[in-house]
């Protein structure tokens, strides 16, 4: 485009500067400030903060709760990725490839949980898991499995797995739509010629659908991993507060409790740095593992 240089510069400044300013003030600055704070001992309430060097990180390495929180986070990452991807891929294929008349109804319904606030979902599912009033125990008792009924969220062993179901329930709709977009974008002729060649539905699924929507699958997996590592603590904080006895404590909930409830801001910041490093490593590793496999057509 031919334009006077000054007009172009002015246009660029208008486009870029206000956005960048807000982004730097409310996202970049807090991030670096958080990194900096992790070298201090600070209650967050007083003016006084003491530089302690790497003491917070030293404490982090020797804190017996930290390995638990990491393991719990990755447990949630793995179970959520498997649960959400298997179900949303199945639903996406069923709603696009099979002749189901009422497909739009399912498509609309399955997105409902994505419209709901995490706090609403958390409260709702706490009720579903409620030992006395809850739907799950009532259902188990109704079919004679009384011995299976338990205080799900208060059970040392079952509390963490119990958090997977609401997360999957809340996530399916969005990823189903994204995968449906990928499948609908595949030229029809490819499936037609596969049918002529005698490929079964199952073969079509493995050898056509999966490779062709691989970019959407990869993006979905990455998105689930990032949002779980950075946001799983919200459902934890609402449903169990990390309990019982840290059985559901994840990195983010521990950060929140340390910084905003126990007022160890410096230590909370160090946990934040740990989350940042682990997420970056995980995302880079996943991108490397899921690289290529793109299928040109």
């Amino acid at each position: 485009m031919v334009q006077p240089q000054r007009q172009r510069t002015f246009f660029l400044l208008i486009c870029l500067v206000p956005t960048l300013l807000l982004f730097v003030v409310f996202t970049v600055y807090p991030l670096f400030s958080g990194l900096y704070l992790s070298f201090f001992d600070w209650t967050g309430l007083s003016q006084h903060r003491t530089f302690v060097g790497l003491a917070n990180y030293d404490h982090l390495l020797h804190d017996p709760i930290i390995p638990k929180t990491i393991w719990h986070d990755y447990f949630l990452v793995l179970t959520k990725v498997i649960g959400i991807m298997v179900l949303s891929l199945f639903f996406a294929v069923a709603l696009t490839q099979l002749r189901i008349k009422e497909a739009p109804v399912y498509r609309i319904l399955f997105f409902f949980p994505n419209l709901m606030a995490v706090v609403v979902i958390g409260i709702l599912w706490s009720f579903i898991y409620n030992p006395d009033l809850g739907l799950i125990n009532a259902g188990l008792r109704a079919i004679g499995l009384d011995s299976w009924a338990r205080p799900w969220l208060g059970d040392q062993q079952w509390a963490l797995p119990s958090l997977v179901l609401p997360s999957v329930w809340a996530g399916i709709g969005l990823f189903m739509l994204m995968l449906m977009g990928g499948i609908l974008n595949v030229p029809k002729e490819i499936y037609q010629s596969a049918r002529i060649d005698g490929a079964s539905e199952w073969q079509q699924f493995w050898h056509l659908t999966i490779p062709l929507v691989w970019p959407q699958i990869r993006n979905s997996v990455l998105y689930i991993v990032i949002t779980t590592l950075n946001g799983s603590f919200i459902i934890v904080q609402i449903m169990t507060q990390g309990g019982p006895n840290n059985a559901t404590q994840v990195m983010g909930s521990y950060l929140y409790q340390q910084a905003f409830q126990q007022f160890h801001f410096g230590y909370g910041a160090a946990i934040g740095v740990m989350i940042l490093i682990l997420s970056l490593i995980t995302v880079l590793l996943l991108q490397w593992l899921m690289r290529g496999k793109r299928f040109e057509y």
Partner: peptide, 16 residues
């Protein structure tokens, strides 16, 4: 920036 854990920024954001 989409990958940054927001929780790390909350403490300074509170002060800001």
């Amino acid at each position: 920036a989409m990958m940054i854990p927001q929780a790390l920024g909350w403490i300074p954001l509170f002060m800001l």
